[in-house]
Amino acid sequence: MSARDRILSRIRKAEAPAAEHLAAPVPGIASLEGAARIERFCAQVEAASATLSRLDSFEALPAALADELRQRNLPAAIRMGADPDFAHLDFGGLQVSHGPGRIEEPATLSRATFGMAETGSLVLLSGPDNPVTLTFLGETHFAVLQESDVKAGFEDVFAGLRAAGHDPRTVNFVTGPSRSADIGQTLQLGAHGPVALHVFLVAGGVE
């Protein structure tokens, strides 16, 4: 008998008491609709020590990104994947490079598939459009999200993933920039991942 069979046989012999698979309650913060949902998302993003600005359209992204880089005293350069929503944009004077994250990445850009109002989280899917390492190696990470993709809570995010038939290697929930309290029990931002996270929330989209 293999280790697998021995473990499974012990489990099956053990007779743990029967218990139903019940539906769990959904808290009120995960059930918001319309403007209240967007408002909570924005507030939670900031509560998680990230920043957020709102854009009227994707076309406004290059200028807004250049502006953010300048204000943060970062080089006018950005690393991104092959996301089609970025492909047609004219980034003008910004030096754009494509591909996964490298050891030094001052600024990276990702397209988030969903937002989650419940906690102010971004939901990113790995793949050629948005390489997973961009989310963790960028010293400042920029993420773009469309308002119509902001979901109320876990239930709608998971339903959305199933409906779209996504099967990425990783689904990444990101809630604010990296942090640690392991030195002196004092919370500091920028442990191994980004020191700063900025969300561009693009108006509209298709519900």
Binding site: G120, S121, D167, P168, N172, T175
Partner: peptide
């Protein structure tokens, strides 16, 4: 409310 990174991983890279 939520830790910074919650990652769901399935299989090797596509």
């Amino acid at each position: 409310d939520m830790s910074v990174y919650t990652t769901l991983s399935a299989g090797p890279r596509r």
